[in-house]
Design a protein around this nucleic acid. Structure first.
Lengths: 115, 115
DNA sequence: TAATATACCTTGACAGGCGAGGTATATTAT
DNA sequence: ATAATATACCTCGCCTGTCAAGGTATATTA
């Protein structure tokens, strides 16, 4: 596992849902948009990506359908459900709490004094 | 696993090292200080805690020694090593990067517009 | 025609978290 | 006296998410 992957772990679902909030999209494109957002510093591994799609679909957070491309490779599109939107907002909230909590936890006493 | 545990995953080592930067301490007390810092919202499970101690010691980040209590249960104290301090600073840096990256990744286009 | 890009997918290994269980000592309540 | 709680340590084995490695098929570029 890479350096960052352990820190990103647990955010995969949120990251994917975020990419589906505004519009339906397909796996390959979702992953590219994630790479672009981090200027190439991060990419979801394909196995992780497709595992997450299955998990999200089983949980009723997304639904999928095949695109009607006349040329090129077939694409499986994903659409976020109402449940998925709820999940997304909940996860965003949890991230905000977790972020504060981790910041508190990894500080030393000296760092607190600086405040 | 609880709600937050997946989000905290990967930070356990950093959290423990942070508690040892200023002074040696023993497991039980370390865990209590973690609970206090989050006002009881988070605690490392004992199994997680001791697994992490073993991992950190194997990695040369901490060393341990038995306290010389004349009464009460025995205590195993941990001391951070120079390697451990290096690791700690590296992990703090990685957390800062990861935090920014995740923030970028879980935003929607609309959220960006608000900036 | 070989290589690269697009686009999908599965299997099995690995690592961290943790529930459940255990040991032993000291204090407090009944 | 004794039961309950707090302190303090520990291990085993399961679960879950990540991902390396492997696969398929189509279209474009060298």
């Amino acid at each position: 596992m890479s350096i960052t992957s352990d820190l990103i772990r647990g955010h995969t679902d949120t990251i994917i849902l975020a990419r589906l909030v505004d519009a339906d999209n397909y796996g390959y494109e979702i992953n590219k948009s994630i790479q672009q957002r981090t200027n190439g510093n991060y990419e979801l591994k394909e196995a992780t990506l497709y595992t997450a799609f299955r998990r999200l679909e089983e949980g009723g957070n997304i639904v999928s359908y095949w695109g009607d491309e006349q040329t090129g490779a077939r694409r499986r599109y994903y659409k976020i459900t109402d449940t998925g939107r709820e999940t997304y907002h909940r996860l965003i909230g949890e991230w905000k709490s977790a972020k504060e909590m981790i910041d508190k936890l990894i500080e030393t006493e000296k760092m607190e004094d600086k405040k």
